[in-house]
Structures are given as C-alpha cells and as structure tokens.
Design a protein around this nucleic acid. Structure first.
Lengths: 240, 240
DNA sequence: CTTGAAGGACGGATCCCTAGACCTTTTCCT
DNA sequence: AGGAAAAGGTCTAGGGATCCGTCCTTCAAG
C-alpha cells in the first residue's frame, strides 16, 4: 500500500515553455493535423494565443525550422508554413522503446474513456463527418503514412465528439506517442483493413449511443495494436 | 474538423518546479496518502528524489508549513512531519466549480481505463488487500472525511493493480481534483453505502477478470457522483 | 560532552522567459 | 512610383526561478 508513495516522490519534470511549444507544434505537424503548406498564425498573434513571449516562440519556430518541419518567408503575405516535403521521421529512441507498454496503457485509458463519452454525447452531423473519413481511408491501405494521417484524424475526431477540449489534447498527445512507436514497423494492408473495420464498428456503436459495444470494440481494436507491437518490440526487461 | 487546432494553439502552462512540488505533496496530504504524523524523507534526500534543488524544495515545504499542512522540528531525530490537526479544506474556487464537468470527464476516462486494465492484470493478493479496505469503509459511513480517505485508497489501489506508475499518478491527480469538488457537499450514509456496494461489485468483477462488468459498474459508480454534483453545482454557463 | 543528523539561511551563477523597440523584406493600395 | 502595411528577423535590458555550495543552529543519541 505504501507503493503509492513512489508516485508522490517521483521526480518532477518541469517542461519549459520552449520545450512544450516545440512538442506541441511538432506533434501536430508529424500527426498531420497541420498539413504541409498550412500557414501558421503570425508570430505576434501566435505568441499571444500560446501565452508566451515572442522570443520564446521564435526559439521553438527556429528549432522546428532547422529540423525541416517549418519554413518561413518574409515580407507582407509571408509567414511561417509547414514544410512541404516533411523530413523523414526519426526512429524511436531506446527509452521510448523501453516504455512502449506504458504508452499502450495510457492509450487504452484515453481511448476507452473517450469512446464511452463519445457514445453518450455524439451528435449526428459530427458522426457523419467521421464516417466520411472512414470511407476515404479505404483508399490508403497501401500507403501507411496516408492511412495513419486519417487514422489520427478519426481518433482525434472521437475526442471532439466528447466536447471536451482537455480530452482532445490528451488524445493528441497519446497519438503522438503512438506514432513514435508504430511509424517504423510494417503494416500489411490486411491489418489496416481489419483495423478500419473496427473503426466502423466503433462508430456505428457510438451513433447508436451503445456505450458498452463501443467500449468492447475499441478495446479489441487497441489490443490489435498491442499484439503487433508485442511481437516486434523487445520485452521490458529491467526497466525502471 | 479544424476544431482540433484549438487544442494545438491553446496556452502552454509551464508549471514551475516549486508549484508542482506544492501541488504533489499538498494533494498527497489532503487525500490522506500521507497521514498526520508521517515523517517525510530528509530534505537532502527528498530533493534528490524529486530531482530539484534543496532551496526549491524548501520553498515548497515552507509554503505547506505556512498553510498548516506540515511542521518541522530541528535537530537530530527531527524532520518534517505531516501536521496532526490538518487545516480545514478550503472551499472550491469559482474556476474549479466552473470546470467541474471537465473534471468529471477526466475522471471517467481515467477510472474506466484503469478498471479494465486492473481486471485484465489483477493478482489475488493485491485484490484481497483492497477487499479489506472495503470492509473497513463500512464503519465510516457517518464520517465523510474518514470514508473519503479510504475511498481514495481504494481507487488508487485499483491503479496500482495495473502495475503502471504513470496511471497511479494520473489517478492521484484525478482524486485530488475530485476532492476539491466533493469535500464540501453533503453525503448521506445511504449514498455512501450504495457507493461502497458498487466498489464491491467492481472489485468482484476485477477478481474474475471480467473486464466488461468492471467497466459497466464503474461507469454506474461515477455517474452517481456526477448526478449528485449536477444537482448541487451550477451549470457551466458561458465558460471558456 | 562529543558527534552526527537534521532543519535553516545566505550569496552568487546560470538559465529561461518577458517586454519592448527596432530593422528588413515584401506586397498591396493609392 | 511611392507609401503604408504586414510579416519575419534582431537586439537589449531585466526579472525571476533554479541550482550549487557553504555555513549556521538545533538537539538527541551514544
């Protein structure tokens, strides 16, 4: 029972504003929430929205520029744009790999809760919009990056169905963490096809406000990913 | 669909190490995870564990001392202790009250996912330990602070069943947020008795690795709290 | 009565972040 | 053609949080 105190005395990790900004924008770009060619808000506006000083924002923008995710053009009508050929994703670090089970656990938690809340609150028009994504995704079964981008939009879309901004943010972070893991492993079209079949079943259950079925199918869906990862990634040995 | 970008450009809130330390220790004390009389690790050890400088830790300890949650004694054999008569909890601020639905959503997400994972992974000895908590709790139905303390231990205990430190931390934070809301409202013994009946059913399902039932009963349990809050707290008007 | 372990206090160095002014480039409008 | 406007790019001064090391004070165990 005293084990719970380990969490209380665990290290505090104070992320700086610079780090969090790079993380947020970088994740949004890598997930395809910000597509190539998109123009970011002007620096003076964006720093106000993010609640940070402009020089801090610029540090983040410069960092993302140097890594090839952004490029800026000067002068009136200029701005900061998401770079068109995005740089190739980096392979996951050893520490990310070591914690893959924790990431999956977090994902299970977030996705399951969101599926239930979405089933409770879903409204027709938004469900229809997600339905269209699932139709479009069938054309991408041979192109994993394209598939993954729509996949992310679907899952984030589920979070939006809850009407809770905090959950949208949580889902975005979770998908970012998952992308780090799954971007570099093989995804046969049959697997993606099956995954999308599960997407449809989840969405159908949500449309009917059938929380139990949504939860069950979502669990099944996530287990599929875990099964794939378990076969390809190392077991957590003597991890901390 | 562009709504998801609101989350991307939302303000970054960089919590300082000082603030997070006060939050963590203060929450653990208010939840009863650190009981009155408990001695904290020595400053020189604790700051190492938390990964912060001793002066930063001291700021936090001084703050918690001034608010009456801690007191320190000097000299050999001394230390920093959780104060014995804990200061009365402060009533929730207006902003906490305004966001109560979001807090409940987060709680739903965290508790539901943890219930499912716990059902998947639970081991007998730890389940038995939680069972004892539920027996003890029956003697506290007339004393809400005492009831709540065991209640928190039970829910955090569920998180420990998952074997995932990150989820334990999430649960602790969630319970802290809930306590701010429910500490000042009436809790008739019948309501607490019913809640504990649901505790038993959740734990029984977890013992049998029956994930679906655990999820269903947990949902029911959480809805009960929401129902009580919905009747007593203001509707979210034009909140941001 | 000595020693060791604990809290308490201070000062300098460093880094992050803020705030604001100003420069440079480019395009649009008159 | 020329000026205004809008964007990124640069610089500086300063505040605040944090870290690190050192020293002081207290007090019980041995």
């Amino acid at each position: 029972m005293t084990g719970s105190l380990e969490a209380v005395f665990a290290p505090v990790q104070s992320q700086t504003a610079f780090e969090e900004t790079v993380e947020r924008l970088g994740t949004a770009i890598k997930l395809g929430l910000l597509t190539p060619g998109t123009r970011l808000p002007a620096e003076r506006e964006l720093c106000a929205r993010l609640g940070i000083a402009r020089s801090t924002l610029r540090q983040a923008l410069v960092a993302l520029g140097q890594s090839g995710h952004l490029h800026a053009t000067r002068g009136r009508g200029g701005g900061t744009f998401v770079a068109d050929p995005q740089p190739p994703a980096e392979p996951p670090s050893a520490e990310v790999l070591a914690g893959w089970r924790d990431v999956c656990d977090s994902r299970m938690t977030v996705e399951l809760g969101i599926a239930v809340l979405a089933a409770e609150r879903a409204r027709q028009p938004m469900v229809d919009a997600l339905e269209e994504l699932l139709v479009a995704i069938d054309d991408t079964l041979d192109d994993f990056p394209a598939y993954r981008q729509i996949d992310v939009r679907f899952h984030v879309g589920l979070a939006e169905l809850t009407g809770n901004q905090h959950l949208v943010k949580l889902m975005t972070e979770t998908q970012g963490a998952m992308s780090n893991l799954i971007h570099h492993i093989a995804h046969p079209p049959e697997v993606l096809d099956n995954a999308n079949y599960q997407h449809r079943r989840v969405l159908a259950a949500i449309r009917l406000h059938d929380e139990a079925t949504a939860a069950r199918v979502m669990t099944e869906h996530l287990r599929g990913t875990e099964y794939v990862l378990a076969g390809l990634l190392p077991e957590p040995g003597s991890a901390t």
